[in-house]
Design a binder for these strands. Structure first.
Length: 761
DNA sequence: GAGTTTGAAACT
DNA sequence: CAGTTTCAAACTC
């Protein structure tokens, strides 16, 4: 059973990830670390500050890292060590788990590679077949930050105990018997921290062991520590340590109980019909065992804005299937808004429209507004397999998720998941989406989460305006006769509009700015149903317009202020748009899903779902979708001459330059800001002194502070020129130009001072 | 800003 | 599945 104790999650982070005291001094060698036994530690490469946190995760005061073919040790000046040790060398007790030092490091399994790719993952791949002398053990890792010891022991082929020795405050024995044969499946140990809040996520993607129901170390398939640098100069990148080794994940059978921990609390959701599912959320997400079959996680890119909506969709699940868990990306602790769409197993399409399904639709909705935190999560069971689309409404601070369901207005539809290769002819398949019902699920602040489910309206347009804080609705995709909405509580600008072609079953929730896009007739009746079968010239145009892959359309957005010609990707042509969506989904069911999703188990977290096909760019330009998404090319890619892999020196150089450039830009911006600030401050202080005669001359503004700020700008320019290997002449010119700009700025402020003070000047 | 390069998607 | 076409983004000058 995949159980992870909350205690483990509450203990490990603080014990291990004392990032406050971490001194990042050198980066880990990024080349292969399966060096010969006498190999010296590789000299640090060009410092890439974004790679430093890997050291942080393992060796808070790391100054060197040594690895041989038989051991791997991360030594620190303070004695902190990272040891990769075979579990067989460690007896099955907690006490012995604390054993560290050279004795443990002997006869360690060979580490095949240790790499630090650009996505800040330190991956230590161990050779699956350990030497016989090692007793076929699969390895263990001892993390001993600041005197504490953490042993993450692998699964022994010979049944030897695999342990997780926790810091001294961890009292539970972490030893169990191994009953499975551990061979092939990789195990990841990932270090995860968030800014200021170290966490550890332990998850098991499979039922590794027998019937144990307690937290046992060998079941820990994944330890994930993701660190966001406290001071990030390269965006919200996530740094991870992944120690990969071979494990067996076969034998998945019984559903595992789930004990996700949310900031020390256990939140478990279960229904009478389905095995318990659990969602963890909160700032310190810690433990989520996973049975990933059928699950799909769409984790937000760590490089995106933390405010970006993340959609975690869970695929359809049979009532008998094992539980599913969703681990929220840790960026939730950074203000990222997470929406999880989880399909209820009790609301199959065959039951859609029944009172039971209706109740199921509403009840499981779970919102958690963090007290004292702005993070929350919403779980929305659907009645039909959803096609989740992220919607970014231009100009709106709300994030939407569009759920396009394949259903008709009939509540007694019996089939689902059918496909129709001909979008225009669907007479025999009433379930097909000749009308798409939209669910716009906005994300609002945690403290103001409110869900309003309106009943089908029989009157004309409903434009509800209240004085409340802007909120949006979560609309059901099915008939909800029992739910009586409180329309008077709707936020200002909220508009209930009928989804074209959906009869009286679907409603579109529109932010106020889009009211202007809705033609008045669209409000007249909510029971009007526009059929796609009646092709019109406009629809023909729409097909032409939307069949192309407009980015807005592909992202589930409406075009707004685009340069597109004859655009039909707007509410004026909603029916045509929905038809185009349907056509696209018919051709490609995942057309609106992000290409960059979670990789397979054991692989890096993010990967291109399809793979790139680059030929000339070497996958090191933004032409490459993988490179653009800042992920490595994978085996799915069909690229030629790919250089977008972990050890690629070209890629490392590019990443380094990009990081350096970003730092330069920030420094330059800071210097200019400082200059402006100094000048403004000077003006504030000197304005009263300006005489009523001709005022002060510009040079009088060149005080010591201004001069220093100017020098900062000039130095930045010089460094910039040096960084780009500019000739001296060019460098001088750039510096002089910068100086000129500084002077102009000073003069400008001086002139402004005169202008702003006509009375005194 | 114009022209070129590139690769994804559509099309055949 | 492979080759071709289209087209918008990325890139260069």
């Amino acid at each position: 059973m995949d159980v992870v104790s909350p205690e483990l999650n509450s203990l490990l982070p603080d014990e291990i990830m004392d990032t406050e005291a971490i001194a990042m001094e050198e980066e880990l060698p990024t080349e292969h670390l399966a060096a010969p036994p006498q190999s010296e530690p590789e000299p640090p490469q060009v410092p890439m500050e974004t790679e430093l946190p890997e050291i942080v995760s393992l060796c808070p005061t790391t100054t060197s890292m040594q690895m041989t073919s038989t051991d791997a040790q991360c030594s620190t000046s303070s004695g902190t060590q990272l040891l990769l040790a075979p579990s067989g060398l460690i007896s099955g007790t907690t006490t012995s788990a604390k054993t560290t030092g050279p004795a443990v490091t002997q006869n360690l399994p060979k580490i095949s590679s240790v790499t630090v790719p650009a996505n800040h993952q330190l991956i230590i791949n161990k050779v699956s077949g350990a030497p016989a002398a090692v007793g076929k053990s699969l390895g263990a890792a001892v993390l001993k930050p600041e005197g504490q010891k953490l042993l993450v022991a692998g699964l022994s082929k010979t049944g030897q105990p695999i342990m997780l020795a926790l810091p001294h405050t961890w009292n539970k024995p972490a030893t169990t018997q191994s009953t499975g044969d551990a061979k092939a499946q990789p195990t990841q140990i990932k270090m995860v921290t968030t800014v200021g809040k170290p966490v550890i996520a332990v998850s098991s993607a499979s039922q590794l062991m027998g019937s144990s129901t307690t937290l046992q170390a060998q079941q820990l398939k994944t330890l994930q520590f993701t660190k966001k640098p406290a001071v990030s100069t390269a965006g919200p990148m996530i740094t991870k340590l992944i120690i990969t080794k071979a494990l067996n994940n076969k034998g998945l059978s019984s559903p595992a109980s789930v004990a996700p921990v949310v900031t020390g609390r256990v939140v478990t959701q279960s229904t009478p019909v389905t095995p318990p599912r659990s969602i963890t959320f909160g700032e310190t997400i810690s433990t989520v065992p996973q049975n990933t079959s059928g699950n799909s996680k769409v984790a937000i890119s760590p490089l995106k804005s933390p405010s970006k909506l993340t959609v975690v969709s869970v695929a359809s699940q049979s009532p008998n299937s094992p539980q599913k868990s969703v681990t929220l990306p840790l960026s939730v602790a950074l203000g990222q808004q997470i929406l999880t769409v989880q399909q209820s197993a009790t609301t199959s399409p065959a039951k859609a429209g029944t009172s039971q399904s209706t109740a199921q639709t509403v009840k499981p909705v779970q919102t958690v507004g963090g007290v004292g935190t702005s993070q929350f999560k919403t779980i929305i069971p659907l009645t039909t397999p959803p096609n989740v689309q992220q919607i970014q409404v231009p100009g709106s601070r709300f994030h939407y998720v569009r759920l396009v369901t394949a259903t008709t207005g009939s509540s007694t539809a019996q089939s689902s998941g059918s496909t129709n290769t001909n979008p225009s002819i669907q007479p025999a398949k009433p379930v097909m989406m000749n009308a798409a019902v939209r669910m716009s699920v906005p994300i609002v602040s945690a403290q103001t989460i409110k869900q309003v489910v309106p009943k089908p309206l029989t009157s004309a347009a409903q434009v509800v305006t209240t004085s409340q804080t802007p909120q949006r609705l979560i609309m059901p995709a099915t008939h909800l006769p029992q739910i009586q909405p409180n329309l008077t509580s709707l936020p200002p600008g909220t508009v209930l509009a009928p989804a074209h072609g959906s009869g009286n079953m679907g409603y579109a929730v529109l932010p106020a700015p889009y009211v202007t896009q809705i033609p008045q007739p669209a409000f007249v009746t909510l029971t009007s149903s526009s059929s796609f079968s009646t092709a019109t010239p406009i629809q023909t145009q729409a097909r032409l317009s939307l069949n192309g892959y407009c980015d807005c359309f592909a992202n589930g957005e409406f075009c707004n202020n685009c340069n597109c010609v004859n655009c039909f990707n707007n509410l004026d042509h909603e029916s045509e748009r929905l038809k185009a969506i349907k056509a696209c989904l018919d051709r490609n069911p995942v057309a609106f899903k992000p290409k960059i999703g979670k990789g397979k188990e054991g692989e890096s977290d993010r990967r291109h779902s399809k793979g790139c096909n680059c030929k000339k760019s070497g996958c090191l330009k933004n032409y490459c979708e993988c490179y653009e998404a800042k992920i490595m090319c994978s085996s799915m890619c069909k690229c030629m001459g790919c250089k977008n892999f972990e050890e690629s020196p070209e890629r490392k150089t590019l990443m380094h330059l990009a990081d350096a450039a970003e730092v330069r830009v920030q420094q330059q911006t800071a210097a200019k800001t400082k200059l402006s600030s100094q000048i403004s401050d000077l003006l504030t202080r000197t304005t009263p002194a300006i005489t009523s005669g001709g005022g002060k001359l510009p040079y009088t503004f060149v005080t010591k502070e201004v001069a220093e700020a100017t020098c900062d700008c000039l130095l930045e320019q010089a460094e910039q020129a040096e960084l780009t290997n500019q000739p001296q002449a060019v460098a001088e010119r750039l510096i002089l130009e910068e100086f000129g700009r500084c002077l102009r700025r000073i003069i400008s402020f001086a002139g402004k001072a005169k202008t702003d003070c006509p009375i005194n000047c």
